[in-house]
Nucleic acid binder design. Structure first.
Length: 266
DNA sequence: GCGACAG
DNA sequence: ATCTTGTCGC
């Protein structure tokens, strides 16, 4: 047993929220289950010793609103070499409209399907968006963590409703991301590349904020965004493009593809 | 009431 | 997210 879960189960769409009220109620129910502490993975096994590599998954989704289709991708990387170990995609119908604060209900069903299609369970999942930095402290990264038991963190490209001072220009410098309604630090604005706009990192589940920032810096040797995010973004767009013209009916909610050990050039 | 608002 | 021209830089 490598993690608290040895496999990932798809969500039951029959019980998925259909209204904003139901969605908010679900966030309030899950919020107390978030664990905002934990070391850089893996903490369950031997700290990366003995040749055991740390597997980090990047997830992202792309939409075709015209045809009501969503394509998700999960790309597994070795945290130390940043090599792609495995990748998987899943497609389905869009499960919820885009509502700021309720993004998880739109993205998670497809994201979890893609993660479930991987042959291995990631030690950490990097999400495109927020975790605890959320009006009700349950952004998509935290939501995904609570639903699957996986360790997660969020990396967003904009400050959402929070405030921050610009961090120093050097890579690695950061400032707190603050919720002005409570004064608490909900994340950090992190400079992943010298002289380039910062990204916004927050805790998802089972990891501390400082540890989450360390992981993000390890995943950004060259670009502003983590390699996990870049890889997943590229893959889900390709997966969506391959569905060109196909009607939403029939797409259902099928795992479209699962490719092991591929290292695509992009 | 109005604007802002992760992706 | 998605649409969408040209442009600067490695």
């Amino acid at each position: 047993m490598t993690d608290s879960r040895s496999s990932i189960s798809p969500v039951d769409l029959a019980g998925w929220p259909r209204t904003e009220e139901e969605a908010v109620a679900e966030q309030v129910r899950l919020r107390p289950l978030v664990e905002a502490f934990g070391a850089v993975p893996p903490s369950a096994k031997g700290q990366g010793r003995g040749g055991e590599r740390v597997l980090v998954a990047g997830v992202d989704v792309a939409y075709d609103d015209e045809n009501d289709i969503v394509a998700a991708a999960a790309v597994l990387l070795d945290l130390h070499t940043l090599e792609v170990v495995e990748e998987a995609t899943a497609v389905g119908r869009i499960a919820f409209p885009y509502v700021p604060g309720l993004l998880a209900f739109r993205e998670l069903p497809a994201v979890i399907d893609a993660l479930a299609a991987l042959g291995r369970v990631p030690d950490l999942v990097v999400c495109d968006g927020y975790g605890l930095a959320h009006p009700r402290r349950l952004g998509l990264a935290s939501h995904l963590g609570v639903l699957t038991g996986l360790r997660t963190l969020g990396v967003a490209k904009t400050p959402f409703t929070f405030s921050h001072q610009l961090p120093g220009a050097e890579r690695g410098e950061w400032t707190p991301l603050v919720d002005d309604t409570t004064g608490e630090e909900v994340g950090r604005a992190v400079r992943t590349r010298a002289g380039v706009k910062p990204v916004f990192v927050s805790v998802g589940h089972r990891i501390g904020l400082a540890e989450a920032v360390d992981c993000v810096l390890a995943l950004t040797p060259r670009y502003r965004l983590p390699e996990t995010t870049r890889r997943a973004d590229s893959l889900c767009r390709r997966a969506l493009a391959e569905l060109a013209g196909k009607p939403a009916e029939g797409v259902g909610r099928l795992v479209a593809e699962s490719v092991g050990r591929s290292v695509p050039a992009f």
